[in-house]
């Protein structure tokens, strides 16, 4: 478990982190999103005390790291594994030697270290690459080595700063599924920092949006996605182009408000309204056993209130689309 209390960081006169408060439980993946310059990397550095916070506390498994001296901090940091953007691998060390670094710093015997490194590389699916140098590995493989290294000292907290940024979709997916697997197997509390909303949807249990050093919105992923008034929830969803409605029809933007929306809601809506319903575009998926997403439909009726009520009773939030908007004809 990791908890931040009133964590503040100033660089000179600028406040980069402003009294952050949140906690991540064991087994939870907490995503932090935000625009570039929001303070995400600073948050990662302060949470590991690589940068000393100006004020506030970082508490890991009940131990407050904020008032430790350098030597005590080195010991306390073993509880936190860090995954860096651009993998942070040492170019002159093989994959195995990179994974062995934290063990070497700790003074683990070479024999013990060798055994542990083999186990870690196996864990991330790279047993065959132990003797490869970083330049001989793909981006996804390098990031896996970085993950193995972060786990070397059996941490209970993992902090990942843009670990998947710059990876191709396939490598991103493999890193995401590895991190989720590790969370399940090792009961890690994970802070996953990213600016990629697709990755957040596939990995996070809860999300916070950081903007100019403040957490402006946070909550469980599914709750945010089901809340039509949540700006964060909306920004997490892909907004795709949809087909144009016929001239006589009215276009509605419909989003899932609950997990109880029937799968055949389109035909149920058509039956309830007694008019045809066209599906113009949609982005719907199942996350944590709940269906989330949105659809753009058009209905051949101008009785807006009836449409709204019918959709509402199906568990869907409905907003009339501005008739004058750019769209793609299919």
């Amino acid at each position: 478990m990791i908890r931040l209390e009133q964590l503040t960081k100033n660089f000179g006169d600028t406040t980069v982190l402003d009294r952050l408060d949140f906690s991540v439980d064991s087994g939870e993946i907490f995503a932090v999103v935000g625009p570039s310059g929001a303070g995400k990397s600073t948050l990662a550095q302060c949470a590991t005390l690589l940068e000393p916070p100006t004020s506030g506390s970082v508490i890991v498994n009940g131990d407050n790291l904020s008032h430790l001296n350098a030597a005590q901090l080195r010991v306390a940091r073993r509880k936190i594994g860090t995954i860096f953007q651009h993998d942070g691998l040492f170019s002159r060390r093989t994959a195995a030697q990179n994974v062995a670094l934290p063990l070497e710093y700790l003074g683990v015997t070479p024999l013990e270290s060798k055994r542990r490194v083999a186990e870690l590389l196996d864990r991330v699916g790279l047993s065959g690459k132990a003797r490869s140098y970083p330049h001989e590995l793909s981006g996804g493989q390098r990031q896996r080595v970085g993950i193995a290294r972060a786990l070397a000292l059996r941490p209970s907290v993992l902090i990942s700063d843009e670990a998947t940024s710059g990876l191709d979709p396939e490598a991103t997916a493999s890193v995401v599924s590895l991190i989720k697997e590790l969370r399940d197997d090792l009961d890690l509390a994970i802070i996953f920092i990213t600016h990629e909303m697709d990755t957040v949807r596939s990995i996070a249990d809860s999300v916070a949006r950081l903007d100019r050093g403040r957490i402006v919105e946070s909550g469980s992923l599914v709750k945010l996605l089901h809340d039509p008034d949540s700006e964060l929830g909306r920004s997490l969803q892909p907004r795709r182009a949809h087909a144009a409605a016929t001239a006589s029809a009215i276009t509605w933007f419909v989003s899932y408000r609950s997990a109880l929306v029937p799968a055949d809601w389109v035909s149920q809506l058509g039956a309830a309204l007694g008019s045809s319903v066209s599906l113009l575009g949609a982005s719907i998926e199942v996350l944590h056993e709940s269906t989330v997403g949105h659809a753009t439909i058009s209905v051949e009726t101008s009785e807006d209130e009836r449409v709204r009520l019918a959709l509402d009773s199906l568990g869907l939030d409905a907003r009339r689309e501005d008739p004058v908007r750019l769209s793609v004809t299919s």
């Binding site: 550095q45 590991t48 690589l50 080195r74 940091r77 073993r78 936190i80 860090t82 860096f84 942070g88 040492f90 670094l101 934290p102 070497e104 710093y105 700790l106 290294r149 070397a152 000292l153």
Partner: peptide, 18 residues
Amino acid sequence: LARVATASGASPLQVIRT
């Protein structure tokens, strides 16, 4: 890399060396 080493538990001298 110095940050990686520190995060991995290195002392300042270990950071400089490795």
